[in-house]
Write a protein that binds this DNA or RNA. Structure first.
Lengths: 107, 107
DNA sequence: CCCAATATCTTGTCAGCCGATATATTATGG
DNA sequence: CCATAATATATCGGCTGACAAGATATTGGG
């Protein structure tokens, strides 16, 4: 799973959001570190929808602007959970090795 | 940082290794989950060397076969540490949200 | 003698990120 | 009144990078 896809799924965990709302939520939940590009976002959403990790939820017209909402599917939630576990494992293996290096010095 | 690059750096934390040895070490430290492709490996090594995150260490001829060793630079160790922290943060934010979802149900 | 394993590297293809652009509405401000 | 920014959608093209495949070379086993 690519990193933009990971963040899109994460942004959809609590409630359905529309594209622009996802971009803002990702920026918020990453403390401004990740700014999802608009050209990236819609491509990612298409691919996630094709894989049924997200699904169209509803459309709203608010203040004359169309909002197309997506929600996380059960399959998407499982995929995100698996990816989170994988990332945590990767981070841990690197951190452990680095710690051993500081303790013992480079070989 | 790409995931293959992350694993290459991790494999080099404890000691300098040559390309083929890196590939085997990555497979070992990921419990077989990540099998670094040979075409990927050398491209990644070139890019990491260009960025000075790894550096050529030495060359050995062992049993008629050339071994070109790379080592992690200090800059590479710092970059790996930062990336590990970032990955851990990403994994944690996703996990926390998923946990809240199970507890409170989808909104 | 051929094949597998060890070891390097190159080339070509495909996926995907992202900047740029297009379109439309509402609010703000000069 | 018009320009600009924010909100909101979507598409297109360029570039980077992952990976499969193949070239090259040595050693050892069947």
């Amino acid at each position: 799973m690519t990193e933009p896809a990971f963040f899109v799924l994460t942004a959809l965990v609590d409630e359905p959001r529309h594209g622009y709302g996802i971009a803002r939520e990702v920026e918020k939940l990453s403390d401004g570190r990740v700014q999802l590009k608009i050209g990236t976002l819609y491509g990612v959403l298409d691919r996630l929808a094709a894989d049924e990790l997200v699904a169209p939820d509803r459309e709203e017209v608010q203040q004359g602007r169309l909002r197309r909402y997506y929600r996380l599917t059960d399959s998407g939630a499982r995929a995100l959970e698996a990816e989170a576990v994988r990332l945590a494992a990767n981070a841990r293996s690197a951190s452990e090795r680095l710690q051993a290096r500081h303790a013992g010095g480079a070989a």
